Simulated scan of single mutants.
Amino acid sequence: MRIPPLYRKPSWQRFFAGAAVGGCISWVIFLYMFGVMQEKNGYLIEEQSNKIKQLQDDIKIWQEDYRELNKKNEEMLTIQKIDIRLVGYEKYQIKDRQSIFNVEEAIREDLKSLLAKDLSTVHKNKDIVKKTIENKIININGKRYKFIVQEMYFYTTINITVELKLAG
């Protein structure tokens, strides 16, 4: 087999020369376009990485500020409500719900001065609060009763569970 003698025909020589020159020109155009595109993408990636770093730094700053504000707010928590629950009145046959309500209101009235106070201050003085409740004697249906504090929970609401005992 032989290669056909196309080197003698100028039309084929022009065709192959044009294909070679066109291939070189298209390769140069491709390299230029690819380079421009890569440069844009590199710039975009660098810009995005800088923005991500800046946003992460901002997040750290906001989180630190948020933690500091939470600590300050925890320090500044105040008592907003006092919740009293009376237990043990069933064994003394006290069925009058009005009397139970009046007893709870009397204890709540004694502790009214704790409202709008700092939570930490009230918690430090929890023994005084307990003694205030336990030293109180109240009359219900002609009998004298005293209180024993079973549970006390402190947060923005003070929850106190008080047991009723016969005094004397």
Rank of each mutant, 00 (worst) to 15 (best):
R2H: 08
I3S: 05
P5K: 15
P5R: 13
P5V: 15
Y7A: 12
P10M: 06
F15A: 14
F16D: 02
F16E: 04
F16K: 05
G18A: 13
A20Y: 05
V21D: 05
S26C: 10
S26T: 12
S26H: 02
V28N: 08
I29Q: 12
F30Q: 04
F34D: 15
G35F: 06
E39D: 12
K40F: 06
L44Y: 04
I45N: 01
E47V: 05
E47Y: 03
E47F: 03
E47Q: 11
N50D: 09
Q54D: 10
D57E: 15
D58G: 09
K60N: 12
W62Y: 12
Q63R: 10
D65G: 07
L69T: 03
E74M: 03
E74K: 05
Q80D: 15
K81S: 14
I82C: 07
I82A: 09
D83G: 04
I84R: 03
I84A: 09
V87M: 06
Y89W: 02
Y92W: 09
K95A: 08
Q98F: 12
F101N: 12
E104H: 01
E104D: 07
E105G: 00
A106C: 05
I107K: 05
L111Q: 05
A116D: 15
A116K: 15
K117C: 04
D118Q: 06
D118F: 00
L119H: 00
L119T: 00
S120Q: 09
V122C: 01
V122M: 02
V122I: 09
N125W: 03
D127Q: 10
I128H: 05
K131A: 15
T132E: 13
T132P: 00
N135L: 15
N135R: 15
K136H: 14
I138F: 10
N139D: 15
N139A: 13
I140W: 03
N141P: 01
G142R: 06
Y145F: 15
Y145Q: 08
Y145V: 09
I148T: 14
M152D: 00
T157C: 02
T157K: 09
I158T: 08
I160H: 00
I160R: 02
I160V: 15
